[in-house]
């Protein structure tokens, strides 16, 4: 026990475990563990023949961490910054290092703005956002939503009701702003007529 020198015995011996569990002890020797030691020097693994890779062309200005000396030779081109969210993202990258909370808080804020911008933009496209299909909420019916929760001691059930609020909040905010804008326009039209 903890208050004397001896560690309490395990319920099963190594021999019993080896007999019961396929592969028990196969990697007992650390030499058989591929991540041991942590650093293993091998300068050109897997056919990599370059010292520094060719540079991927920078087709448009690519944001980067100010902790880097230069743009890395290879980078993703999934979603270039755009709109108001893009301005926020560029500010986060240009002004703050990864060590500053402002960097990450601005990027999270940009994510929320991006979602709102994109949803509004979608209404002017042939593919408007559809919260029913995009949340997959109909799977609650097809995949036993009630049975998966009823009678279960699940710690997540207490906060799951917040999820619809998180999804709905931008829609509610957009609806309120839209309603106010329409009302303001109507009032101004009424006062001028």
């Amino acid at each position: 026990m903890a208050y004397t020198q001896q560690k309490p015995p395990n319920p099963e011996t190594s021999g019993q475990l080896r007999a019961r569990i396929p592969g028990w002890g196969a990697d007992l020797d650390p030499k058989d563990r591929p991540a041991v030691p942590k650093e293993q020097f091998e300068p050109h693994p897997y056919g990599a023949e370059w010292d520094f890779p060719d540079r991927q062309p920078e087709e448009r200005p690519r944001e980067r961490s100010i902790e880097h000396e230069f743009l890395t030779p290879v980078f993703g081109t999934s979603c270039p910054p755009h709109g108001v969210s893009g301005v926020i993202r560029r500010t986060a990258y240009q002004r703050y290092s990864e060590g500053r909370a402002a960097h990450w808080l601005l990027l999270i804020a940009a994510d929320r703005v991006d979602a709102l911008e994109s949803t509004l933009r979608s209404f002017a496209s042939r593919h408007p956002d559809n919260p029913v299909t995009e949340t997959g909420i109909l799977s609650e019916i097809k995949h036993h939503g009630l049975r998966s929760r009823r009678g279960q001691k699940r710690a997540d059930l207490i906060h799951q009701p917040l999820d619809p609020l998180i999804v709905a909040a931008p829609w509610i905010i957009a609806g309120v702003l839209g309603y106010r804008a329409v009302r303001r326009i109507r009032r101004s039209q009424g006062s001028t007529s």
Binding site: L116, D129, E134, T135, I166
Partner: peptide
């Protein structure tokens, strides 16, 4: 498409 929302395009 935003938190808790995805689609196939």
């Amino acid at each position: 498409r935003g938190p808790y929302r995805i689609r196939v395009e």
